[in-house]
């Protein structure tokens, strides 16, 4: 299912939001919103291994066109990924309707599948992580896994 816009959430250590935006802007993102947050690392594991995981986090919310989603995710992976000091995790959510975006006006994405129903009788397909791309040979250097 294709959507015109995607909301990218990037969770990084506090102080790295500017690096996130710098990387995102280089591949075409416009702007973002930074939310302060606290991480919840395993306290027992921290004491066991004698390390401290920085609990203070920042969530950077970036609204991008779907065309550049993969480029932005890859840029974030390289600039502030888990192997960097930012220790960032980034993921994208589909955006159905948008208002207030300078370049967008009002946008309507393609119709959704029926499976988008919020249901207390949770369908297994809804809960399960799609494994369509499980064996697609995606190398570690190309971490973007599109579940559409």
């Amino acid at each position: 299912m294709k959507y015109k816009y995607e909301a990218i959430f990037c969770i990084v250590n506090a102080g790295f939001s500017e690096e996130v935006m710098k990387a995102a802007r280089e591949v075409g993102a416009q702007g973002g919103t930074v939310i302060s947050a606290n991480g919840t690392a395993n306290v027992q594991a921290e004491s066991l291994f004698g390390i401290t995981i920085q609990p203070r986090k920042e969530i950077v919310l970036i609204l991008v066109e779907s065309d550049i989603k993969e480029a932005v995710l890859k840029a974030l992976y390289h600039a502030v990924g888990l192997k960097t000091a930012g220790q960032g995790v980034a993921f994208a959510l589909p955006v159905k309707d948008v208002v207030g975006l300078r370049t967008a006006g009002k946008q309507k994405a393609l119709p959704q599948a029926d499976g988008d129903n919020a249901s207390p009788s949770a369908d297994e397909d809804d809960l399960a992580i799609s494994d369509e791309n499980e064996d697609d040979g995606t190398p570690p250097d190309a971490p973007v896994i599109d579940k559409d």
């Binding site: 955006v95 159905k96 948008v98 208002v99 975006l101 919020a118 249901s119």
Partner: peptide
């Protein structure tokens, strides 16, 4: 969204952005 769009355009210093993300389950 229509109401929000209208408010974003008319309220002084009240500009914003709104978007929806479909929920799959609860």
């Amino acid at each position: 969204l229509t109401t929000l769009e209208n408010k974003f355009a008319t309220i002084r210093e009240g500009k914003g952005v709104a978007f929806t993300v479909p929920l799959s389950s609860t």
